[in-house]
């Protein structure tokens, strides 16, 4: 290899081709995805994140929750995602169009959270999630720094956690979620992919071919 100019061109071509193919190619395919309007329901899906949930997505990012949790349900015949109740259908690109910081994740030390707010038969409520974050469970550590333990002044706050056993604060004290914890919980509860888009339905079975009976 003697020609430095050609060598340079080759280097840039190598990087440029994969960028054009993967990044620009997928951009051409998905860059203009819009919400899907369902005339029967009279609304478009997915819905934009409420303000507090959008703030919570930043908390999710700051804490790097994606180190342990994914947000992608795989297709029905691939893994036990549906059997675990993470969602009735696979995630599709349209699910994420309103997420400013998409966190698909690469590790499942904890469960998938794609459809946490739409779980069946019952989705967790804010109290469940706050207790889980405060106390931890199984392989999940406690995120106690997202909560404030304080003296009760007057009435007990209606935001105070309902804690039992060794977690119950001393008499005259209460544990309340900080603003960050409330935002994070609002974000987690906003994760809902129950609506079935045309592209998320399984492909129809191929019609029997002529002569198949023979």
């Amino acid at each position: 290899m003697k020609n430095g100019f050609l060598f340079f061109l080759g280097l840039f071509a190598a990087l440029g081709l994969s960028w054009a193919g993967i990044v620009l190619g997928s951009n051409a395919q998905l860059g203009r995805l819009t919400p899907y309007y369902d005339a029967n329901e009279g609304q478009a899906f997915p819905a934009p994140l409420p303000g507090v949930a959008a703030e919570g997505q930043l908390v999710y990012r700051d804490l790097n929750c994606a180190a342990c949790h994914t947000q992608q349900v795989r297709r029905p015949d691939f893994g036990a995602d549906q059997a675990r109740g993470w969602g009735d259908r696979q995630s599709v690109a349209r699910d994420y169009i309103f997420q400013s910081h998409v966190q698909l994740g690469e590790s499942r030390i904890g469960p998938d959270l794609t459809n946490l707010g739409g779980r069946k038969p019952t989705a967790p409520d804010a109290g469940d999630l706050e207790n889980l974050l405060y106390a931890g469970q199984g392989g999940m550590p406690a995120y106690a720094f997202l909560f404030e333990r304080r003296k009760v002044l007057g009435q007990v706050s209606d935001q105070a956690l309902q804690l039992t056993g060794r977690l119950r604060p001393a008499r005259g004290y209460e544990v309340v979620p900080t603003r960050r914890a409330q935002e994070l919980v609002a974000y987690l509860l906003s994760l809902n992919t129950v609506y079935d888009y045309p592209e998320s339905r399984p492909a129809p079975a191929a019609p029997p071919q002529e002569g198949a009976r023979k």
Binding site: A13, A14, L15, S18, W19, G21, I22, R74, F78, Q90
Partner: peptide, 16 residues
């Protein structure tokens, strides 16, 4: 150089 950059999608198998 030419092939390497194309192999990143293997982590996206089964996803959206």
């Amino acid at each position: 150089l030419f092939i390497g950059g194309w192999t990143g999608g293997r982590h996206l198998i089964g996803g959206p």
